[in-house]
Design a protein around this nucleic acid. Structure first.
Lengths: 115, 115
DNA sequence: CTCATATGCCACCTCCAGGTTGCATGTGAG
DNA sequence: CTCACATGCAACCTGGAGGTGGCATATGAG
């Protein structure tokens, strides 16, 4: 019923989709999961334990950075990556919007049935 | 620090990745956004307004169903799709885990700095 | 019964995400 | 200065995602 909520969802959809897609790859989600403790790690550090080439990891990091999920900062000869909390918050906001819409619909349905 | 939370994240990672990937496509996210009002819609209904073939939409719906984001039920000659609230909830739980980890890290960092 | 409707299934096409290798570049260590 | 190390960049390959069209099948309408 709330057309405003629907409009908000539609407006945020493209960016939300890219962020979801960024987290959709297992390797990338693993990277994010590894960074979610707030640490700043270099590429080679993030390569450790993964069966992939440095370049592959590097590409994934680039994707995550383009989606604004992580941030990179060059210090000396290595670039350190950290999680960016704000986009994660926006993702949560999107999901909350979807589920709240759904909750509202359920409530309306319930009240309709009970009437 | 909480190794249990990290283990939980690692365990849920594969399924979470598939769900993120399912929502990563703009068309699919639009479908989910359209279904999040609790309605049950047929394929042709969902095709209306989208510049895609019925088969394309059908495939997307199949992907969403495989990821357990939506459910289908055949009634008569049409199959109706509805949003499945539980996986959405799990996604939210995953994001909450990530951001709570992050919050914890921030808190620890803050207390460390302030010490 | 007959027909239009709603969908499923299959073959096919195209393009890019994900991955590798090789080389170039910048920077800290000694 | 020289060398090892961390990274960037470009070319290349390949499988599967996303899309189409055609045909088959079930089912409600008349």
């Amino acid at each position: 019923m709330p057309a405003s909520a629907r409009a908000r969802l539609a407006r945020r959809l493209p960016q939300a989709a890219t962020m979801f897609a960024a987290l959709g790859d297992p390797t990338r989600l693993a990277l994010v999961t590894r960074l979610c403790d707030g640490s700043r790690r270099s590429i080679t550090q993030l390569c450790a334990g993964q069966p992939l080439t440095r370049q592959a990891i590097s590409k994934h990091l680039r994707v995550l950075e383009d989606a604004r999920v992580i941030r990179s900062e060059r210090t000396g000869r290595e670039s350190l990556y950290t999680l960016d909390p704000q986009p994660i918050g926006e993702l949560r906001a999107y999901i909350d919007l979807v589920s709240s819409q759904w909750d509202d619909a359920l409530a309306r349905l319930k009240s309709f049935v009970e009437k």
